[in-house]
């Protein structure tokens, strides 16, 4: 009875999600297996060419570059974010919600504006340059904007709040007595962190890493704005297939590849988490 009522309540939203998310995504999946038409259209014949093209050496360098930038950004974001989450979780319980709120606040505000702020800072005539010059430095500064570093900074800056949130959740759930138990049994502060706190909060770190990695590798805004279009991420490649090159099947194959990376990493993470928490029965 209840389940029927709940079905009626869910139907409009589920219909919406089916029509405007599930079907379009399946369409993209299908599109990846069609041939590109001579004048940019789609020819409805089955092919594996697009999938093959994803793994073409031509694009290998873009993938490697994307993956290294995304991986570096995710790594930095995870280290900084974990430290911040740890510090928030160590603060008095009363102050934690407000600290967390302000740590996460930028995440919910305009992505473009946050990225633009770094253009203002890193610009050749930007704030950092003017501060350095006003301190009396006369020489030429190394280029800051339109570099890989700028893109990494931008990605870390934009996704850091997410990592803080992901790491804070398991840290705040930790029973403080567990760390105390480790101290009581003779573990030093560092040993306790390495052997107890860190393994118990690893799922949050993994979640943070996976999301920053996937969102970065699929990003086209930050490379365009802070990288000055000098190098491409997979996101830029997708963008180009749809808006300039007009090769939709290849663009679709690329975005399926993105989803595959995300699903693969998330599955790996779930598997590792389950192993760590002992959800599987190991003996009888």
């Amino acid at each position: 009875m209840t389940d029927r009522k709940s079905f009626y309540l869910m139907t409009p939203a589920l219909a919406w999600l089916t029509g405007l998310m599930v079907i379009p995504c399946l369409l993209i999946l299908a599109l990846a297996f069609f041939r590109r038409g001579t004048y940019g259209g789609i020819e409805y014949t089955f092919t594996l060419e697009n999938i093959g093209l994803v793994f073409d050496p031509l694009y290998a360098s873009i993938f490697l570059k994307s993956a290294s930038i995304a991986g570096l950004s995710a790594l930095i974001a995870v280290i900084v974010g974990y430290a911040a989450a740890y510090a928030i979780a160590a603060a008095p319980a009363k102050r934690q919600p407000i600290l967390l709120f302000f740590a996460v606040l930028p995440f919910w505000s305009n992505y473009l504006v946050r990225t633009y702020a770094w253009i203002v800072l890193l610009n050749r005539e930007g704030l950092i340059a003017s501060i350095v010059h006003s301190l009396g430095y006369e020489g030429e500064l190394p280029r800051m904007l339109y570099t890989e570093s700028a893109v990494v900074i931008g990605l870390v800056y934009n996704y850091l709040p997410f990592v803080i949130l992901a790491c804070y959740a398991p840290l705040s759930r930790l029973n403080p007595e567990i760390a105390e138990a480790s101290r009581d049994l003779g573990g030093s502060g560092w040993t306790t962190f390495r052997r107890v706190t860190l393994p118990m909060t690893a799922p949050g770190i993994a979640t943070g890493f996976v999301f920053v990695f996937v969102l970065s590798i699929g990003n086209f805004v930050t490379p365009a704005l802070l990288g000055g279009g000098q190098f491409q991420m997979i996101g830029n490649l997708v963008y180009a297939q749809f808006l300039t090159a007009n090769d939709w099947p290849f663009g679709a194959a690329l975005s399926m590849f993105l989803i595959a990376i995300m699903m693969g990493l998330l599955t790996l993470q779930t598997f590792a988490t389950e192993r760590a928490s002992g959800a599987r029965q190991e003996d009888t």
Binding site: G218, G235, V238, S255, I259
Partner: peptide, 11 residues
């Protein structure tokens, strides 16, 4: 990822 949903809807 936004870009995937975006191109899916566009297609």
């Amino acid at each position: 990822p936004d870009i995937v949903l975006a191109i899916a809807l566009l297609s």
